[in-house]
């Protein structure tokens, strides 16, 4: 999704920012560092870090963008657990589409066969 949307917007992204996090690689996305910091703080459930990251994102991108980023963060707290909790396999369509990213990012290391 990120690859396609970045190409559509003629932005250059580096997938290492996804696996490595803030500072690992340029995100290639406007306010990418602030967005990553916000996401990472919420996953860590560190209220002080969340407040700092939220204020930085508000200053950089505005309050509406911050609310929408929080919505995405919340949504993927749900979707990841639906996938992990039900043991669904990756769809054939997504397997094909994501092959370059999985290889580049080493995502295949999260081999679901190990979860049996």
């Amino acid at each position: 999704m990120l690859r396609v949307s970045s190409q559509t917007m003629q932005e250059r992204y580096d997938g290492a920012a996804i696996t490595g996090g803030r500072g690992a690689a340029p995100t290639g996305v406007p306010h990418g560092d602030e967005l990553l910091a916000f996401a990472e703080a919420v996953v860590a459930r560190d209220e002080r870090a969340i407040e700092e990251a939220r204020e930085r994102l508000i200053a950089a991108a505005g309050p509406r963008a911050t609310v929408d980023a929080a919505g995405v963060i919340a949504n993927f707290h749900r979707m990841t657990r639906i996938a992990d909790g039900t043991g669904i396999p990756l769809d054939e369509r997504m397997l094909k589409a994501s092959a370059p990213e999985r290889e580049a990012l080493g995502i295949d290391a999260f081999d679901r066969r190990r979860r049996r």
Binding site: M1, L2, S5, P30, L36, A69
Partner: peptide, 9 residues
């Protein structure tokens, strides 16, 4: 793209 960066992370 910003949404998917957050989602991916």
């Amino acid at each position: 793209a910003q949404m998917e960066l957050v989602a991916g992370r």
